[in-house]
Amino acid sequence: MKAPVLDVQHLTMRFGGLTAVSDLSFSARRGEITAIIGPNGAGKTTVFNCVTGFYQPTEGMIRLTHPDGKEFLLERMFDFRIAHKGRVARTFQNIRLFAGMTVLENLLTAQHNTLMRASGYTFFGIVGLPVYARAERAAIDKARSWLDRVGLLARADDPAGDLPYGAQRRLEIVRAMCTDPVLLCLDEPAAGLNPREADDLNRLLISIGRETGTSILLIEHHMHVVMEISNHIVVLDYGQKISEGTPQEIRNDPKVIAAYLGVEEEAMQAAGGAG
């Protein structure tokens, strides 16, 4: 059993009278792909926003453990610090690239904090010390290798907003990877992709997990993607966890089937009794 990279305990998020996530506990293990699934409005994106600092949870604890054993309590950190210090990167359901900047610029912006330090918080950079030029070359090389991996090298100098949809999805993932994350949170990365692109995405995500050691937390509706690549699945419905387990277990769980397909009242109760 691998150590957990992310440990969520009793997470609750309320918006006024609405409880979007209620007493949710799960953990994601290092180097694995953990998927959060559930019907629309189940609270998946809210969980993501709590983990990545866009919301401050009402209650609960989110503990992130780095490979070197350093621990971060994400519910006490906020905003960009989670991405910067905690090294949690994310993508968005509706793609958020810097559309007016080139593909390469997008990837360099992702390495902002590293480059900022190398440029002596701009002072070395403005006088043109070689230390910054070296750091920038390294950053470009890193961007180049990631672009090569997702087949976007030829489009490095094109504006990100001009790329086709599937390429934008891939670019957003590699942009997140350029921050060297410990945990990568992907919000519906396969949305709008055709089957071939979805297969490519599967391969990319598996290779990311294997080669960089980055753990992945995934929200996805495409069951094809989820079942094929996830090591562990958490199922949410109405803000509560209704099931958790390996893809095989989830596939056969009557409660999950009930939540997705909808069943008669009695059948639901029977399923609840059985589970």
């Binding site: 905003d79 991405a83 910067h84 958020r96 810097f98 360099l108 912006t109 390495q111 902002h112 403005i126």
Partner: peptide
């Protein structure tokens, strides 16, 4: 012109393009 080519300038432009994405990349907006 120099600042535009430095990380700070790129962060400015990124901020203009999408502030939320900047935050998700660890940029202190």
């Amino acid at each position: 012109i120099r600042l535009r080519r430095l990380p700070i300038g790129r962060a400015w432009e990124a901020l203009r393009e999408d502030e939320i994405a900047c935050r998700s990349l660890g940029i202190n907006t």
